[in-house]
């Protein structure tokens, strides 16, 4: 029982990160139908930039803020120089572009930073907190609360604010959005910036628990993508649920079966989702009438 609880806690922590990555996928996918495989690089940038800024003497909170800004600039540049010029390209071409962008960002990060693993201190110390029969790290709580805060913030943004609804409007009907005066270009840029910021925050929160390197983005993107697929591509709630499930299943399989197969879990989930439940857990048929 205590072992199960322990796996559950670490699974939830890992899953919260996947959920944030999956949310990043969801936002960009909804605004532009682009599946952005460079999403993991934003997470990598979040951790790496924070570490190097912090190592250069900048206090951690400020370093984290700088990292978020760097990721946002990377997101905006990705949109402006890789996605926007390819407007009208097929979905497969756009995916290939984002994979290329991901490799490019990784390569650039290797030049600027290094290839080693890095971590910075946890925000509230490393003393485990006892919960029932198991323990949880204070940093895990940071990750979980961070994911909750981002999800509720996003929900409020899309359901309650004019700009949030405008992004939905562009996603639903780009022509009609332009005709009421919403700049589709600006909304696209905004959704890339938002996704990048969320990715970076995930990277900052998780780095004290699982050290980061320039290589972490690729697997994170795939696992976040598995979460988004499992939840139903385009559904924010599904993204969170899917991300958490991928994280928990991964930790359980590592704990009870073998750590060798840990990284295979995400791929098995992608394949099973495609075979059994192509629209995902929360995916639904569209209700539009014409």
């Amino acid at each position: 029982m205590s072992q199960f609880l322990q796996f559950l806690f670490s699974g939830l922590t890992e899953g919260a990160v996947y959920a944030m990555v999956a949310l990043g996928f969801t936002i960009i996918y909804n605004a532009s139908d682009v599946v952005n495989f460079a999403q993991g690089e934003f997470v990598m940038l979040g951790g790496m930039v924070t570490f190097f800024a912090n190592a250069a003497g900048i206090p951690l909170p400020l370093a984290a803020l700088i990292a978020i800004l760097v990721a946002v600039v990377a997101g905006l540049a990705l949109n402006r120089f890789a996605i926007e010029p390819a407007r009208g390209a097929s979905v497969v071409n756009l995916i290939i572009i984002t994979i290329g962008a991901s490799i490019f960002i990784k390569g650039l990060a290797q030049l600027v930073f290094d290839k080693r693993f890095h971590r910075f201190p946890a925000f509230s110390g490393d003393d485990p907190i006892r919960v029932l029969d198991a323990t949880i790290l204070p940093q895990s709580l940071w990750v979980l609360f961070g994911a909750c805060a981002i999800f509720s913030g996003l929900w409020l943004f899309f359901a309650r604010t004019l700009v949030g609804k405008a992004i939905t409007a562009v996603a639903a009907n780009r022509l009609a959005a332009e005709l009421v005066g919403i700049s589709a270009k600006r909304m696209m840029a905004l959704s890339f910036a938002l996704s990048a910021a969320i990715g970076a925050i995930a990277g900052i929160l998780i780095t004290p628990i699982s050290p980061t390197s320039v290589e972490v983005g690729t697997l994170l993107a795939l696992k976040g993508f598995a979460g988004a697929m499992l939840g139903g591509m385009g559904n924010p709630l599904g993204a969170v649920a899917g991300g958490l499930i991928v994280g928990i299943v991964e930790k359980m399989s590592a704990g009870y079966v073998s750590t060798n197969y840990k990284d295979a879990v995400a791929f098995i989930i992608i394949i099973l989702t495609l075979l059994v439940l192509p629209t995902g857990l929360f995916g639904k048929a569209r209700v539009d009438r014409v």
Binding site: K165, A166, A176, V180, V290
Partner: peptide, 26 residues
């Protein structure tokens, strides 16, 4: 200058009230 486009082009997922609100976006 406002246009009612061919085929209506409603924002499907947005509510009726939000569709109207989007008309006043600017």
């Amino acid at each position: 200058i406002a246009q009612v486009p061919e085929g209506r082009q409603i924002f499907g997922p947005l509510s009726v009230a939000d569709n109207l609100r989007m008309g006043a976006y600017l």
